[in-house]
Simulated assay, not measured.
Amino acid sequence: MSLHSLEEDQEYINLQTELVRLQQHIKQTNQRVIILFEGRDTAGKGGAIMRFIRFLNPRLYKVVALSKPTEKELGQWYFQRYIEHLPGPGEMVLFDRSWYNRAVVEPVMGFCTKKQYSLFNKQVVQLENMLVNDGIHLFKFWFSIDAEEQKRRLEDRVYNPLKQWKLSSVDVEAQSKWEEFTKYKETMFKKTGTVKSPWIVIKGNDRDVARKEVIRYVVNRFEYDKKGETKERLTLDESIVTEVFDAHSLQECLSK
């Protein structure tokens, strides 16, 4: 669905109305919000961010999509270049991929050592606990698609001149390394999904449904003036959204 047709979707407009009201509440109460958009290549992270921010005040949010690290950054503490982008009072920061590159993409593609991967897993939960304990609202979304849908979207990138810029070396190997990506993804869920900062797994084969559920999840987690006045459903669709924060919820997620 295009941006234009989305604006003709009353459900989307209602959810955006809720989100705009939430953004004003975040500004007025000096709250800080971090939203991570993660998933396999072509899972719809960038599109979900575009739809999320469609009607928001650009002065109050920032989208962060970092390129590969420079030589200087490679010599820094791994999290340092991400911490530079943390939100100030009243702000939202949306990461199009995040520090979780080191949990899945980097080990699969050989971009980090086993030692670096192990150190990341030891530090990331501590870091996120510090962020949450300091009052930051942290959302970690993982967009889940199946292999056939990824194949279809990758082919679209190859032949669609408007999308060819999205192709990367990781894209080229995405299908051949599907099982390896799956193994590291499940390990990431197990090691880093916690009660304080669970993974929110979104079934992403239907892009439009997934994008609306992300907005719904975020507004559901706050109380703000005029919440629910649109009469739109703000409760979660458990057939689309699964929270992963322990072994039981992980098994539930994998069984869907």
Rank of each mutant, 00 (worst) to 15 (best):
L154H: 02
T113C: 07
I215C: 05
E149M: 14
R216P: 01
E179F: 01
N129C: 13
Y184V: 09
F111P: 07
F181E: 03
E148C: 10
C112F: 06
K190N: 10
F139R: 05
D146H: 14
Q123T: 09
Y159N: 06
Y217E: 01
V170M: 14
K140P: 01
V125D: 02
N129K: 15
I202F: 02
V158D: 08
F141M: 02
W165D: 09
L119H: 15
S168D: 09
I145V: 09
E155D: 08
I215N: 03
E155V: 06
W165R: 10
F139E: 03
G110I: 07
V172D: 11
L127C: 12
Y117H: 11
D156N: 15
K203T: 03
D208S: 13
K122S: 13
Y217R: 00
N133F: 15
L138Q: 05
I145L: 04
T182A: 10
W199A: 04
N129H: 15
V218C: 01
V125W: 11
V195A: 15
L162K: 06
V158R: 12
D156Y: 11
V201F: 00
L138T: 04
M109V: 11
P198L: 12
S176R: 09
N129G: 13
Q123K: 13
G135T: 04
W199V: 06
R152H: 09
T192D: 00
N220P: 06
Q116Y: 02
R221W: 02
V219L: 08
I145H: 05
N205T: 07
G110S: 10
C112Y: 12
E155W: 01
M130E: 09
S144R: 06
G135H: 06
V158I: 14
K166T: 00
M188D: 03
E173W: 08
K203C: 00
I136E: 07
P198I: 12
E148L: 15
R216K: 04
L138F: 11
K163P: 02
Q175W: 06
S197P: 01
H137C: 14
K177V: 05
P198N: 03
Y159S: 06
R153T: 04
P198K: 13
R152Q: 14
Y159R: 03
L138G: 03
F189T: 02
Q150C: 08
I145T: 07
V158L: 12
D146M: 08
K151F: 05
E173Q: 11
Y217C: 03
F139K: 02
V201D: 00
L127Q: 09
D206F: 04
Y217V: 04
F120C: 06
T182L: 07
P198D: 06
D146S: 05
I136M: 13
K183R: 14
D171R: 09
K196L: 15
N133T: 15
I200D: 02
K140G: 01
K196E: 13
A210P: 00
V219F: 05
G135L: 04
W199I: 04
F141Y: 08
Q116G: 08
L127R: 08
D146G: 09
S169N: 12
E173F: 10
E213T: 01
A174T: 07
S197Q: 01
L119Y: 13
M109T: 08
R207I: 12
T194F: 12
C112P: 11
S168W: 14
A147F: 08
D156R: 07
Q116I: 09
F120L: 08
